[in-house]
């Protein structure tokens, strides 16, 4: 059974008052909604982790919901915030983890990740896109990327920094 926004807002208001049964129903509904929300945005293998992250944030910040306002825009804002956070962590992790011994779990995961990335990367300037693709996705060092693109090492770093900021902004304003 799917609940409409008004019903979810009522459940959340009850949860704020301490009603555990309403909260359990609400979290289950949120879980389904979040799984759909993230389906085309992140690799399938990471959806559960991110859904749990968002549910934990929802729990920690449940006082910030205004019962007089719609519920789903509130949930979507938290989901988007956590998604950007995940994106940043992934990029930081990729800097450390990407290397010769990089393991790939499934083709589908890689394709989905690349599809969602491709949409976002399309919003970057060509030099930023190239620098991020080479260093953060292909795993080249800054020096190798500089040699490959003809940009100076400093410029590669600047393009990566500005590109990541633009990516985060693109996700936030989605």
């Amino acid at each position: 059974m799917n609940f409409d926004d008004a019903a979810l807002a009522r459940l959340m208001a009850l949860a704020q008052a301490g009603d555990a049964r309403a909260y359990a129903v609400l979290l289950e509904q949120c879980r389904r909604w979040l799984a759909r929300f993230f389906r085309n945005r992140i690799p399938p293998g990471k959806i559960d982790d991110l859904v749990q992250d968002v549910l934990a944030s929802l729990h920690a910040k449940r006082a910030s919901f205004d019962p007089a306002r719609p519920f789903l825009p509130w949930l979507a804002a938290i989901a988007r915030y956590r998604w950007v956070d995940q994106l940043r962590r992934d990029y930081r992790g990729a800097e450390v983890e990407l290397g010769a011994d990089q393991a790939v779990d499934s083709d589908e995961e890689v394709i989905t990740a690349r599809l969602s990335l491709a949409t976002l990367m399309g919003q970057l300037k060509p030099a930023q896109r190239e620098a991020i693709a080479l260093v953060k996705i292909e795993g080249l060092s800054i020096a190798e990327a500089a040699a490959s693109t003809g940009q100076s090492e400093a410029l590669v770093k600047v393009n990566i920094h500005r590109g990541l900021k633009r990516l985060a902004a693109a996700v936030e304003s989605d």
Binding site: Q16, G18, A20, A24, L55, R62, A63, D66, P67
Partner: peptide, 12 residues
């Protein structure tokens, strides 16, 4: 775990 941890809160 989250349901078990639920306590009433005052909306911000």
């Amino acid at each position: 775990a989250l349901v078990a941890d639920l306590a009433p809160v005052t909306p911000l």
